[in-house]
Structures are given as C-alpha cells and as structure tokens.
Amino acid sequence: MERVLNPFSLLAERWQPSAAMVRRATFAALVMSVVIVVTGGAVRLTASGLGCTTWPQCTDDSLTPTAEMGFHGVVEFTNRMLTYVLSAAIGWAILAARCHRPWRRSLTKLGWAQFWLVMSNAVLGGITVLTGLNPYTVALHMIAAMALVWVALLMWERSKEGDGPAKLAVARPIHQLSYVLVTVIGLLVAAGTLVTGAGHHPGTPQDNKIVPRIPIDYDRLAQFHADFAMISVGLAIAVLFVFAAVKAPQPAKARAKELLAVLLLQGVLGFIQYFTDAPELMVGLHMLLAAITWIAALRIPLALRVREVEETPADTPAPRTPETATV
C-alpha cells in the first residue's frame, strides 16, 4: 500500500533540522508571544486602541490605515501586522519539529495549539475593536495572550526533553504545591486585567468618553491586586523553604528564586506606578514583567519532573510508515 504524502512529510524527507534548531525555533516562538503582549499594551498606552475603526479591515473602505488616521492608525495596524510575524515564528517551530528525526508528534501538537490560539485571539482582538474596547473583551484578549505564552513555553521546554513518561523528582504533594503557586500567579495576572479595565488607560484619548470602563472603584481594585501580589510573594517564599527542606532539584530551587525576584521587582514597580498615576512607560514595563512572571512560575513545576530522552542514532533513517493527509 503506497503512502499518502502531504507537504509536511515531503519536506521532512528532504530536510531534517537538528535538535538545536528545533530548540531555537521554539524559543523564537516564545519570544514573539511575549513581544505581542508588550506591543498589544503599547496600542492601549498610546491611545491607539481604535486607531483602526473596524476589523478585519482598518476602515470600512481600506485594509490599511489612511493618512487621516495619523499616528494611532499606524500603531494599531502595526500591531496587527506583528501577528503575521508571530505566526511565521510559530510556523517555523511547527516545521522544525515536524521535520526533525525522530518525529515527535507531541511537539507538533503544541505548535498547532499555538497557531489556533493566535487565530482565536486575532478574532477576539477584532471583537474588542468592534465592541469599542469593551474592558471585559480587552481582559480576555490579554488572558488569551498569556495562554499562548504558556503553550509556547511548554513547547520550548519539551524540545529540551525526551518523550518518555514524566517522572516526578519530588513527592507528589510538593509537585502539587508548585501548581498551586502557578494558579495563584495566574489569578494575579487576571486581577491585573481588571485594574486595567478600570484604570487610567482606556486605549483611546482621554477626552473620548465612549469607551466603557469596569464600574468598580479603581483604588479598590488596585488594593485587591496589591493584596493578591502579597499573597503571591508569601507563597513563593514558602515554596523556597519547602524546596530547601525536601532537597528539591537545584533547577527547581533556582527557578523559585527567579520567580521571587521578579515578583518583588514587579511589586516595587506596581507601587511606583500607582503613586505616579500610571505613566505609560511604567505600565508597559509592568506588562512585560507580568509575562516574565507568568513564565517564571510555569517553569517551576516543569523542573520537578524529568522525561527521558530516547536514544536514536543520528544516522539512522526514519522508518517509512503510512501517513495520512493530516499532521
């Protein structure tokens, strides 16, 4: 019975990237997932959220911004175009993972998960524009971007491991504690989106009163966010002591220290931001650190288990097995 070859399998027969290239490709996708978080924040901080007045076109009559739309139109449209750069980085990761020998389906699945997250978040971004920057859709847009960061990080970390079953390096309750920490950090990030929804930067010029805001007092939301940050710092410190007591793997201890350092820096920046009426540069840095904090938290449970790398001779050709028309 003849094989049914699709473009991916045809390419895989002619190009087999190294494991190092796969790791570089997955890391590039991770970097771009963080970049898109920061540039999305830049759109809001420059009051360019409605620089393009509709979606998927920029205006009713033009795919690109017109001269009359000025700076705001350029900023919003540039952010939209960066989605294609992000997609290209993810596409490279998918192709590198698919063509590497041996083919690891787990990696290509994570790559395709990133692709569909980008597509769904692009639609969500369009809904955000069409609803006039509704703060709840803006918050969902940010959370979906963080979900993309999560999957991109997982693909990068898995590219450095094998496909064997995960084996815990600590007792299960300790591993579960690390997931509690990840959950708390995730809730901290989500709380930050609520502060944004009631805060100083609606995404349009300040004299635009049309953009809705979350109808909760900004100071109360900021205090709630700060309280959650204190809880996160306390839990991170507790995790450090627990890891030391149970002699957790050194990489896990190092990652827990990194998370605590980023949390403290983020806390200082947040307080400065609050008492200086949230200047744009401070808010932008706060968003960048939010993505880095999320990454730092996610890396901790990944350091508490190992996956064996399957030994495959470099010069052994891949088995020629039947393939279907899908990846």
Rank of each mutant, 00 (worst) to 15 (best):
N208Q: 07
D315L: 12
H200I: 12
M282F: 13
P212N: 05
D61H: 07
T66Y: 02
L95C: 06
M142V: 15
A238N: 12
R3F: 03
Q57S: 04
A248Y: 05
A152I: 04
R307G: 03
A190I: 07
A47M: 13
K209Q: 06
V195F: 01
I295L: 11
Y274W: 13
L148S: 07
L194C: 01
D60N: 08
A113G: 10
R255K: 14
L194R: 14
F228M: 13
L235F: 06
P165W: 00
A147M: 07
L86V: 13
G203K: 15
I143E: 06
R255E: 12
G270R: 06
M142L: 15
M230V: 13
A96H: 03
P249G: 12
Q206T: 11
G162F: 03
A297H: 00
K167P: 03
V242T: 10
W112I: 03
V233I: 15
A325M: 10
A245M: 15
L304Y: 02
E323I: 13
A25I: 15
I185T: 12
N79E: 10
D61C: 02
P17F: 00
A89T: 09
T196W: 07
V22Q: 07
W92I: 14
G111S: 08
C52N: 09
G234S: 08
H200D: 07
I214S: 04
T326V: 15
V182I: 05
A166L: 14
A122W: 09
P251M: 03
L259I: 12
L130I: 13
A248N: 08
A42H: 12
L168W: 00
T66W: 00
A325E: 13
M282S: 12
A229F: 13
T131L: 10
F27C: 04
V149R: 00
Q57H: 05
A25H: 10
T324F: 05
V233Y: 06
R105F: 11
P56S: 04
R172N: 08
I300Y: 04
